[in-house]
């Protein structure tokens, strides 16, 4: 299969690879996919007090398109508020990377990873508020 230049660029120079401290209250972690399906994405966000994502990191087990989708996702959500970030759609990722139809699900996974990281962050915040009251 031929890859688009953008997929290759993200695959060869992935942005924001790494790990944030998942026990930090300001960090949300999304872990989606399944090893048996051949793709697992872990996307983490660090959110400041204004609700802005100031850092994002990922690690992905998956094909080149999955790696590129998650790399692009971290790039896009950095600097956005969590509400803005949750608006990102897999179609936009797929379009930006020129993914062929069989690779659309890799971008779906990236969208899921963003949502799941935000969920995790929100849950943590809610838990923190509860423990304060």
């Amino acid at each position: 299969m031929a890859y688009s230049d953008k997929v290759i660029d993200h695959y060869e120079n992935p942005r924001n690879v790494g790990t944030l401290d998942k026990n930090d209250d300001n960090v949300g972690t999304g872990l989606v996919g399944a090893p048996a399906c051949g793709d697992v994405m872990r996307l983490q966000i660090k959110v400041n007090d204004d609700g802005v994502i100031e850092d994002a990191k990922f690690k992905t087990f998956g094909c080149g398109s999955a790696i590129a989708s998650s790399s692009l996702a971290t790039e896009w959500i950095k600097g956005k508020t969590i509400d803005e970030a949750s608006e990102i759609k897999n179609e936009t990722i797929a379009k930006e990377l020129n993914l062929p139809p069989v690779k659309i699900h890799c971008s779906v996974l990236a969208e899921d990873a963003i949502k799941s990281a935000i969920d995790d962050f929100r849950k943590k915040q809610a838990a923190r508020r509860e423990s304060k009251t």
Partner: peptide
């Protein structure tokens, strides 16, 4: 780049996770 390798190295049993 692999979250699984990192988890395995941390001693997490990947089979214990409820994957989606």
């Amino acid at each position: 780049l692999s979250p699984l390798y990192e988890m395995a190295k941390e001693g997490i049993d990947l089979k214990s996770i409820a994957w989606t």
